[in-house]
Amino acid sequence: MNTLFLIGAICYVVLALGLIYRIARGPSAADRLVAADSLDLITSTALVLYALSCGRMIYLDIALVVAILGFISTVFISRYLEGRV
């Protein structure tokens, strides 16, 4: 069962590498922000899977914090792009 979760976590990390390509490449700032927002969610899900795989539940708290920070930073950066901060 632990190997199952570990394989899942590795799949998510590979997907995160694909998103990093979009962040580096994206033609405009909005493209980069979309990819970064999804990268936060993917990181948080990979952390959940890794926590279940190695049995350390402290990583669940870190996943929650990553999700919260991703939400706040996306909202603030998009307001900044709009010129309203």
């Binding site: 969610l41 959940v48 669940l60 929650l64 999700a67």
Partner: peptide
């Protein structure tokens, strides 16, 4: 904690998506 994580993502993601779409 897992339930909280799923519910939190489901509640906050539309807000950030809406802000991002409107800004773009």
């Amino acid at each position: 904690k897992l339930v909280i994580l799923a519910v939190f993502v489901l509640v906050t993601n539309p807000i950030s998506n809406h802000a991002l779409c409107k800004a773009a």
